[in-house]
Design a protein around this nucleic acid. Structure first.
Lengths: 221, 221
DNA sequence: GTATGCGAAATCCTGCCGCAAGGCTGGGCG
DNA sequence: CGCCCAGCCTTGCGGCAGGATTTCGCATAC
């Protein structure tokens, strides 16, 4: 799961990136609203976190512009401005949530989970695919026998992404974007390697099917 | 837009009902968690607002129960408990937002708007031809029996193109342009081959009729 | 130092693709 | 009415793109 952070204060930005990375997200940070479009053009994001007080175009304008252009990207506003009008305005412009600084990182992570969950039509943080229980908050997968699968970070990220689109085809490109941040570059083969290892660990609890030329799909069987 | 409010304090409940009514919502209020299921069984709601401190079954339990039963109703928690753990727990159980009392009615209304907007935006992009459901976003076709058709890239492209002009004749030339990338060249026979294989997979869920000298047409029968 | 995760490279292998050949069909024409 | 032929349908097959798997070296953490 990949998040775009728009925050001009390097200290705050760094803290958020660090915290969300611990929570298992891939986070790309930009310092101003003007850089956002370029990022969105090239990469799929599951959520954007926007600070209102930006140099140049401010957060309000950014939110309005994104929504006017038809983007359905979930938007979480994070700011020091806690006026009632600010909150109502941001939400009515098209933001999905509004969190006032200072906030605790666990709450930010929880709200991210809730927004991403809702955007992918999931309801709770535990989903069942085949004979597999997938605990999104706990970042672990559990067998039907109760055995916890020992998944590495990448393996989990791929499983999570596939589970969010269970039964549907997820392109290899998208899986790459789900597990690495923008600056690092990996070959498409890396996905094949991780999927292969994931399959071995899944056993017959769930099936990751490769759809030639399209991507992968997590099947209920 | 119809909202279900679960709140035991009559004063608070009344104030919220009044405020949201002003904002244009139809609000039904109940005083305990036990009354919720009955309401949901008889009426469609776009959102539920739940107080955590309820007599009898509390809000947490209610949220957990609703999600476990598969409900996808957007849930907004409104409570006086503002501990970090409460917030994270509620969100992770399946709530979509968490607002701490005391709050301003305009903000509640704004968050309701945001949640309902997001929930109704999830419009499945699919079309139905004959006994076939064609999921454009998921790049897959589903039988009336629920069976997912295993289509190759070319087969899917042809079906998509035909479905897009359902009931009308599509020329072979156009189908060629739909499946090959721009400059590469294939014989017209290739289309015939793919159509043949597509027909075999479609079974009797839909009919691809060949119109001599003109092209192909996807029929509802 | 040891263990583990990660990804590039190399190799194996599956199954898609398009051609070709032969059967089938419908319309034109005497 | 029956023949002919163009155009469509189907099947088999070789070629090959690209996914699957294994191996191995590097980096990081403990």
């Amino acid at each position: 799961m990949r998040i775009l952070l728009v925050e001009d204060d390097p200290l705050v930005s760094d803290a958020i990136v660090r915290g969300l990375a611990t929570a298992g997200y891939v986070v790309d940070a930009v310092g101003d609203a003007e850089s956002v479009q370029g990022r969105l053009d090239t990469t799929h994001y599951d959520l954007a976190i926007v600070d209102l007080g930006l140099p140049g175009e401010d957060g309000f304008t950014l939110v309005r512009r994104l929504r006017r252009d038809g983007s359905s990207l979930p938007l979480l506003i994070v700011t020091a401005r806690d006026g009632l009008d600010d909150r109502v305005n941001a939400l009515d412009l098209g933001a999905d949530d509004y969190l006032v600084k200072p906030f605790a990182l666990p709450e930010l992570a929880a709200r991210c989970r809730a927004l991403i969950r809702r955007a992918t039509a999931a309801t709770a943080n535990e989903m069942v695919v085949g004979r597999l229980r997938i605990d999104l908050a706990g970042r672990r997968a559990i067998d039907d026998t109760g055995r916890v699968l020992e998944l590495t970070r990448r393996e989990w990220s791929i499983l999570e992404c596939l589970a969010h689109h269970s039964g549907r085809v997820v392109s290899k490109e998208r899986l790459i974007q789900a597990i690495v941040s923008w600056d690092e570059e990996i070959s498409g083969n890396a996905i094949e390697v991780h999927v292969s290892r994931l399959r071995a660990k899944l056993g017959d609890a769930a099936t990751v099917r490769g759809i030639r030329g399209l991507g992968y799909r997590l099947d209920d069987a």
